[in-house]
Design a protein around this nucleic acid. Structure first.
Lengths: 340, 340
DNA sequence: CTGTTAGCGCCTTCAA
DNA sequence: TTGAAGGCGCTAACAG
């Protein structure tokens, strides 16, 4: 058995309240403080967090419910967030929703049951019903990377639609007119698809149905399947906009298997500056999400809510995401395909 | 305020014990059960896990303390482990040590303070002192992927040394005699380095100091720096053994920057069948770690310990890791370099 | 099967 | 500043 505050009591002969006050940073006579400190060291005493939380109703723990822990993007977000929370004296409890909305609901409930002080959520879907347990228990939730309509939560995203629009503009500026998109129907995938449409209309470019490939969620498979289709087209596109990192992986795999090269055969434009952008040659041009900033803002807002800020209505913070240039977009001079 | 068991009491008029028994799966008169269930639904009652854990001393939560949450290998391990634990009715609390042994010590202590029932540890270093808080609190720990000498814990690893030996044999079989290694001084890096030495001696191959590049820990930087050095050698190796995934990333990046190709300029052999092995052409030959099996065994052993198995001495389970062939190793016919 | 009675380990009034 | 007493929400003996 671990030692308890009572053991400290019998060791020092002091009253429980005195010891408790010391533990919580109160003023105690120097003489007694030394006694207590000695006893703590001797008995290797550690306060029981459960008992403490039972009374104070604070665990100094934040739950991070994440859509897909196996994705690289998640890993980096979690790394930053963990560091930031630690600076605030908070610990982090991570739960993986594995792309499953029902699991997400369970995870949120689990965090609430574990009495976390707040939740960071990178949501799987768009269903604000998943948040009901947190709402009922008055646990503040901050959304990261994706919005959930009607959630009433603070939310940090990048300017997805606008960034996608700028990216596709880049393709048009290089003379591309046959531009395809592979996107998911998730929040980010859809926003980026809308940005693609914005840019295409802006430049008065044709948008054949064949040039739009979509699936329920971002995955390597989605990119792979989409690229297979696009390559098989009678009049294939010259450029492809890939709405997320995993999709990009799939596209590159499909091209590899066909022995096709970028940018000679296809110009590519993706999202996120992760492994792929570092190791594949030529380097792929991507929209680079400022992940550290997303985490900073998210933690800042959540800490404010946890500290009792309750009167302020939900905020939506949109962070600018720039384009990190690579060599995956070639110049097209005439209407016909031609090496750049 | 959330409702408590007392609210159920006043709602139903039953005694606390009856309700408690129902909650814990005991037999209750049908009539009362229906009353309780109705009250629970009406008040949206959820048992307070803290109060419950305070008495039972069981949280049904496992802590997973991981060396580097940003690595892909970790992400996949966490995904599998979370699924397996869930099947056992356990939840998982993930803590990132970010390659920092001191943080690892804090993380383990944090898990112990949070009263987890057991800990899965993918350790940063070799210091069993980090485990003292778990030892003192009698919290079982199972080591994953890496051993910690003197830890007295169950441990699941692959046959690192043997797998590396087999891998280097493969290089020798293709006629390579000038084989270099880039390794870390961490447990896995070192074991794999020993396997390299085994194979080199077995084939009576020279091991110039220049062909061995090492650093304190696995990182992209280590691979990048190492490859820079190897490429600059007067008599460079023809093949390179990379002792982990991040190292491989760095090596490929360095080769890309010099415009060198695999396998024409260098034959490569790595570890882990992750993104790199999927998207880089030619495909890189790697030692493929059976990650799912590692997790299964780890969870199995930990569950046994948690269920009170205390008399059995620590077990070391070593899992066979095979080679997933790619096209990154070319054939060498004569002593001189020659395209395969 | 049900109800009563003690606590789990700690914090927080109060009075001294 | 200190000590005694009560209670956070729940479970685990008992006795009925």
């Amino acid at each position: 058995m671990a030692s308890t505050i009572k053991d400290i009591k019998s060791e020092t002969g002091l009253a429980l309240a005195t010891i408790s006050k010391y533990l919580n940073g109160g003023n105690v006579r120097t003489e007694n403080r030394e006694k207590i400190e000695a006893a703590i060291k001797k008995l290797d005493y550690r306060p029981n967090e459960m008992a403490r939380a039972l009374i104070t109703k604070k665990t100094r723990t934040i739950g991070f419910v994440i859509n897909d822990i196996a994705s690289q993007f998640s890993g980096i977000l979690l790394r930053y967030t963990g560091q930031l929370l630690r600076k605030h004296g908070y610990s982090m409890m991570i739960c993986d929703s594995a792309h499953d909305p029902q699991l997400e609901e369970k995870n949120i409930r689990f965090c609430v049951d574990k009495k976390v002080d707040g939740i960071l959520l990178l949501p799987v879907g768009m269903d604000s019903g998943n948040l009901s347990s947190a709402k009922a228990a008055n646990v503040p939730v901050v959304l990261l990377d994706r919005e959930v309509p009607g959630s009433g939560c603070d939310c940090i995203t990048i300017d997805n639609r606008e960034a996608a629009r700028r990216a596709v503009n880049e393709l048009a500026r290089h003379g591309h007119t046959r531009i395809a998109v592979i996107h998911s129907e998730e929040y980010t995938g859809n926003e980026r698809y809308l940005g693609y449409l914005d840019a295409m209309r802006e430049h008065d470019l044709p948008i054949p149905d064949d040039y739009i490939y979509s699936g329920p969620m971002h995955s390597t498979q989605l990119g792979y399947r989409g690229m297979e289709k696009l390559m098989a087209l009678e009049e294939p596109p010259t450029a492809i906009m890939m709405t997320n990192y995993e999709v990009s992986l799939g596209v590159v795999m499909a091209m590899n298997e066909e022995g096709l090269k970028c940018p000679e055969d296809f110009s590519l434009l993706g999202f996120d500056e992760l492994t792929l952008a570092l190791v594949v040659r030529p380097k792929i041009t991507v929209v680079a999400q400022p992940m550290e900033e997303i985490c900073q803002e998210g933690v800042r807002l959540l800490m404010a809510r946890v500290d009792g800020e309750t009167d302020i209505p939900p905020r939506r913070i949109s962070i600018y995401a720039g384009i990190a240039p690579g060599e995956s977009v070639r110049e097209i001079r005439t209407d016909r395909t031609q090496a750049g």
